[in-house]
């Protein structure tokens, strides 16, 4: 019980500190902006630890964060192997193929207003569907290894990126296109110099959504059959054999991989679309 009370005290203290920080004169400084959410995340972990220890919850149900961290450290080799199989081979290759395919289709279809008008509603609709369900079909088509995982990822990321790219390519207004016309720019030059840059914020929106989808697709596909490695495989067998701390370690890897992928995308976006209003200044959205 003492653990739980200690965790509660820590939580109250951290919250008071956060409140003070947010109200202080430094609230807009970079350090505080990072410190406050980090402290909040830390409190959640401490609360979790306190609840598990305070109420003596069995590690088979919910292991404490410290136990998960211990398992994580002890099995880095295995986690790295799973990470390679699922994230590097399955998710990233599928993401690259899917993004390229969506990109090419978007540029090809963009020349026809008619097809664009027809594709947008359909693409928007398909992007909202539970496409993960296609995983068992693709696993039976492409076999158990990472190729089928990449295929699932391709299908999952294709439509969000396609829809966003098509929408982004329509973003330029008549005045800008007329300007390109007075420069005697052809279709290609106008595409590269005006319309693609203008579409970039949209394209990156699609890419950022797709990073999460890529991981989801790669992991779900492993539930339907995989070689004896991979994060999805380890999670499903770990649940079966009650090695729950290992499952949580895999979840931690998945969370870090997802956040890192998203972060990398956001970083590239910042470099590419530095001119866009949303990237300038530090105004709150």
């Amino acid at each position: 019980m003492i653990w739980f009370i200690a965790a509660l005290v820590f939580w109250l203290g951290a919250w008071a500190l956060n409140a003070a920080l947010a109200r202080s004169a430094y609230a807009d400084s970079r350090a505080v902006k990072i410190a406050v959410p980090v402290l909040f995340g830390l409190t959640l972990l401490v609360l979790w630890e306190g609840v598990v220890r305070g109420f003596g919850i069995s590690p088979v149900i919910l292991p404490a964060p410290s136990a998960v961290a211990g398992t994580f450290m002890a099995s880095t080799d295995m986690l790295w192997e799973d990470f390679q199989q699922t994230v590097l081979k399955g998710a990233l290759s599928g993401f690259a193929i899917g993004a390229l395919a969506a990109f090419s289709v978007a540029i090809a279809i963009d020349r026809s207003r008619f097809l664009t008008r027809g594709l947008l509603p359909i693409g928007n609709f398909v992007a909202a569907l539970p496409i993960v369900g296609i995983a068992p079909i693709l696993v039976s088509w492409f076999g158990f290894d990472w190729h089928s995982k990449a295929a699932v990822v391709v299908v999952m990321v294709f439509f969000p990126i396609l829809v966003n790219t098509v929408q982004g390519l329509r973003e330029t207004d008549q005045m800008q296109r007329d300007l390109m016309h007075t420069y005697a720019a052809g279709y290609g030059a106008a595409l590269v110099k005006l319309r693609l840059p203008a579409a970039m914020p949209f394209i990156f929106n699609g890419l950022k959504v797709a990073t999460t989808l890529a991981l989801i697709g790669a992991i779900v596909a492993e539930y339907f059959g995989s070689p004896t490695r991979g994060m999805g495989f380890r999670i499903s067998t770990g649940v079966g054999s009650l090695s729950i701390d290992l499952v949580w370690a895999e979840i931690a890897v998945a969370a870090m991989a997802g956040t890192a992928l998203y972060g990398v995308m956001a970083w590239i976006e910042k470099r590419v679309t530095f001119w866009h209003p949303s990237q300038r200044g530090s105004g709150r959205a």
Binding site: I61, I235, I244, Y262
Partner: peptide
């Protein structure tokens, strides 16, 4: 950004 499917079996076990 955390793939929820990784958590899904855990939520069901819990």
């Amino acid at each position: 950004t955390i793939p929820i499917v990784a958590l899904a079996p855990m939520i069901i076990v819990l």
